[in-house]
Computed example of a mutant assay.
Amino acid sequence: MNVSLPEALKAWAESRVAEGRYSSTSDYIRDLMRRDQEDADRIRFLQRKIDEGRASGPSEQTVDEIFADLYAKL
């Protein structure tokens, strides 16, 4: 796969490699893509939890009771 980058982005990627954290610009791009996948997974997980919460309806507990239960679990 070949990717064309504007000069400013190419320079940025090359500067990240020059810092020594990445062995090549390809390594840097792969890391960015892995992180993007992880972020997308986290967002999907959170959205599922939000949807579940909305579908469950209102709670019978007060906010203080909810936090007390949470702290007890920790």
Rank of each mutant, 00 (worst) to 15 (best):
N2Y: 10
N2K: 14
N2G: 05
V3E: 11
V3M: 10
P6E: 13
P6C: 10
E7M: 08
E7V: 08
E7Y: 07
L9W: 07
L9N: 13
K10Y: 15
A11H: 12
A11I: 06
W12S: 12
E14I: 05
S15I: 00
S15N: 01
S15H: 00
S15T: 00
S15F: 00
R16S: 01
V17N: 00
A18L: 07
E19R: 09
G20F: 05
R21H: 05
Y22T: 01
Y22N: 02
Y22E: 01
Y22R: 01
S24Y: 05
S26D: 02
Y28E: 01
Y28I: 01
R30M: 03
D31T: 02
M33T: 05
M33D: 06
R34Y: 06
R35G: 06
D36V: 03
Q37W: 03
E38I: 03
E38M: 02
E38D: 03
A40D: 07
A40N: 08
R42S: 15
I43P: 00
I43M: 12
R44F: 12
R44K: 15
F45C: 04
F45V: 07
F45G: 03
L46K: 13
Q47R: 11
R48T: 14
K49V: 07
I50A: 14
D51L: 11
E52W: 11
E52C: 11
E52N: 13
G53L: 15
G53C: 14
R54C: 11
R54P: 04
A55V: 06
G57P: 06
G57R: 15
S59Y: 10
E60L: 15
V63I: 13
D64I: 02
E65W: 06
I66W: 01
F67D: 05
A68F: 05
A68E: 08
L70E: 10
L70D: 10
Y71D: 09
Y71T: 07
A72E: 12
A72R: 06
A72C: 09
A72L: 08
K73R: 14
L74S: 12
L74G: 11
L74T: 13
